[in-house]
Design a protein around this nucleic acid. Structure first.
Lengths: 193, 193
DNA sequence: CTTGTTGGTCAACGCTTGTTGGCAAACGTA
DNA sequence: TACGTTTGCCAACAAGCGTTGACCAACAAG
């Protein structure tokens, strides 16, 4: 123990370095994916030795886990008025994605690594399915409706932040809300076609 | 020259091997992405020596280029009746994706490699934008509308064939058409929201 | 001051990768 | 038969990877 008898939160002198490494890792993973984002390159960005990464995060998998350890949580999503929930969800996802660079990393790596794909899926399962259950008709259809919503929003994230299609990047935030909002709304609340 | 004086199409004795390599490459690229699909693994699948891959395709990039050399071409897409074009396009894409394994490979690799991302984008540009221009109002909006359609259909491909979300895989072909058809229809033909 | 702990660098390891060149067998043609 | 070309295997190369352990400087506690 380094600190006093106070329970936890022992502020270490290396916390700054740890944070620098994590930020560089998020950058690289988001930009290059898992294999191309080498520990050496991350360490070079953070201006420290590669062995430090190992010391602080165990191995490359541990570093990635720490880098994308994010709980999206769409918490304060307003469910009222009922007919605006689609647009609200699109807005929430847009801010979420633009604030958390690790989401792009997670999607990029998920394209290749089953573990990361599972993580992406668990976000869907824990957040979107309950929402679909609360908002939509026929609760047993919630997984289907949630999957359609995930497909919609991930499709946008894919073309906009990963594949970087110019036409998709050119869309403004409110344009996206106007186009995708009704789609999500229909997937969540419309009767089975 | 091995063959006679007939112009081209010189049938070589190694054509079978070439095809075997290409099939194995498509499998591996679609399943593992670019970096994890090693030449040695592909050669092992094809039951030949890794050096043969180099001889026939130059290098790994050349092999990938040959493996995903596909011209989707949604050619015989019926534009009539006008209000059914959305559903028709979804059907076309579903068959396309299920017949051509290289599309999954292209999407997986595109998540990491800018070149593959460009290829995906060019498919969109050459096929979808002209369609949007013919079908929708305000031709100058064609790129936007095409991008939305691409986002929709790629989102489904992502969750169904790449990330493999169970709820997305469970959807039947006609369910997908029923849900996504109206979405595409609106993106293509509805007035600007 | 001494001593133990922490933060950081350096050099090397074992392994896998893409890639190359040489060599032997099978083949087509004369 | 003899000969040039094609097909294939084998062994090796250089480079890059993740990972390890020895070693030194700065600091905190006694």
């Amino acid at each position: 123990m380094t600190g006093s008898t106070e329970n936890q939160q022992t502020a270490r002198r290396s916390d700054a370095t740890r944070a620098t490494i994590l930020a560089a890792a998020r950058n690289r993973f988001a930009a290059d994916g898992y294999e191309k984002a080498t520990i050496r390159a991350i360490a070079r960005d953070a201006k420290i030795d590669p062995s430090m990464v190992m010391r602080y995060y165990g191995n490359k998998a541990g570093l990635f886990a720490a880098a994308v350890a994010v709980d999206p949580g769409l918490p304060g999503l307003p469910l009222e008025p009922r007919e605006e929930v689609g647009r609200a969800l699109v807005r929430q996802f847009l801010t979420l994605w633009e604030e958390n660079e690790e989401l792009t990393a997670l999607l990029r790596v998920g394209a290749t690594d089953p573990n990361a794909a599972d993580r992406t899926q668990s976000v869907l399962r824990d957040q979107l399915i309950p929402l679909a259950r609360r908002v939509g008709p026929e609760p047993e259809q919630a997984p289907t409706r949630a999957a359609l919503c995930a497909s919609t929003v991930l499709g946008l994230a894919l073309t906009r932040y990963v594949l970087r299609f110019p036409a998709s990047m050119a869309l403004s935030r409110e344009e996206i809300v106007d186009w995708l909002g009704p789609t999500i709304q229909r997937y969540l609340t419309a009767p089975t076609p």
